[in-house]
Amino acid sequence: MNIVVCVKYVPDATADRRFESDNTVDRVGVDGLLSELDEYAVEQALQLKEKREGEDVTVTALCVGPEKALDAVRKALQMGADKGVHVSDEAIAGSDYAATSLVLAKAVEKIGATLEDGKVDLVVCGMASTDASGSVVPAMLAERLGLPQVTFASVIETQGDQVRIKRDGDTATEVIGGTMPLVLSVTDQSGEARYPSFKGIMAAKKKPLETYTLADIGLEADQVGLSVAWSEVTDTTERPPRTAGEIVKDEDGSGATALTEFLASKKFI
């Protein structure tokens, strides 16, 4: 069985994230890392592999992103993925969801073609990227690959080619079923992601890691990137910092009185 995990390299959420002058996300000036939410995807892919003892399962980590994004693939390898694929090409910079999903789809097809049984059975994504947080790439990728999707899974079970997930929606908790090949996305409720062990870090150095250019996956430069994006960011403004409020110390019940008075003064009572 072949599993591809899509991992995104994102600016660190705890750093000062910002935009470039062309309104694209600054992916160079701000330290980046494997999106925390995609660690859960890697974890679930690895757990699926571990549960299928005796079966031949290959987990390939796939990332589309700038040169530095190789770090995200490495981290996935250190956690335990078998292979890494990094799609990197100047022309991809500034790609929107449509272009990103196109590149991912072509890369998944190419990975499938290079693997022994010639196909990918399962594509695992995170629930959202921590920078764009669109939660749409998995659906768009599934559409491009012509596959079903079972998404936002908090619990994942598989049996043979059957996949069952639990998802906590707005109005109901649902059990959703599908048949592989399909695209799966997992939430941060699916279980803590493992840390790379020392052994894992050493082993990762010897694992196959390939870089694809656009040409490698059969795409032209004018099919991707900022200039052909289907939407355009016209303006970005930093929110003014909140002005410091009043802070009181509770002494013998004074806090409750002050709180009540504040709420009353703002007409919340």
Binding site: R242, A244, E246, A256
Partner: peptide
Amino acid sequence: FELVDFGVVGDLHKVLPAATEQIEAK
């Protein structure tokens, strides 16, 4: 506290029940 318009430094188990009582009274 960097975000707040109003903050109380204190134990929520004391502050909240007392405030709730005062709000109900009001």
